[in-house]
Amino acid sequence: MGAKYNQSGSLISTQIGHHKEAISYSLRRLWQSNLSTWITLAVIGIALCLPSSLYLLLQNLKSLTDDKREVPTISLFIKQNISEQQARDRGDLIQELSQIDKVVLVPRDEALEDFRKITGFAETLETLDENPLPHVLVVTPHIDLIANPTDDMQKLADKLESYPEIDLVQMDLEWVSRLRSILRISERAIFIISGLLALTVLLVIGNTIKLNIENRKEEIEVSKLIGASASYIRRPFLYTGIWYGLFGGVISLVLVHLALISFVAPVNELAKLYGSTFIISGLSLSTTLYILLASSALGLIGAWIAVGRHLRDASIAS
């Protein structure tokens, strides 16, 4: 009897027709389905929203330490017996070092003047015979040295401390380094948590699709009897998996944004107390798309595994 020609024209338009059919069919099934589908979607959404929100928290903490306007500095306190000119010379020498971005000398008189203005201790300071403040060199290291603090940081501090004019090295950037290392550990933790939750989503979707297949066993058998190809039978289940992932991803984004909105006001208040202009940042468009893509991919993979395992079980004797 040979190949039969159908009236649909080319193979490609047949394929497109099959995909359209599978998409509308799987969406209709999802829409008509019961409460358990919504619970499954909620589970996927919550599972996906945890890594997203942790990632967001991390991004915000990072942006806090990246803030160029508040580049952390090293303060070098000059010994009392060193003159302003000697201090300036030392500052110029330090400026030559490769790790250093900028050196500013704050002479003791200027420092006293500032201190008077800021603190309102003017009268108390009047009672002192001489200026108790030392000259200070405010050193700004290069940003990449702060961004990747290693032993180099400590070496720089030791080197600065070894100069004869220097009395004391005070690093304002220690907290940055510490926070950075904590963030790096957190990043790894988030990575692991994300992996485990992705696995959870995979299992949930896989199991849902498996139940789906069991519910549609009769339909699968009949389709096979009347000559449906394996890919024709597989397709609606794979799309169902994609929808579970995609809609779960959408739910997770909604949850993350709701949480974010509740954070904006208190974070702004806190930032104001610290005199910072920090503003909490949301998920960028690319991150949003990435999350949706990743969740859809998880759905597809979960469905693929379930379909691979269970469609064979459901197959008729051959």
Binding site: N6, Q7, S8, S13, G17, S223, G227, Y232
Partner: peptide
């Protein structure tokens, strides 16, 4: 169903 499987218009 059989016609859909064949991809008919």
């Amino acid at each position: 169903l059989p016609l859909k499987i064949e991809g008919m218009r």
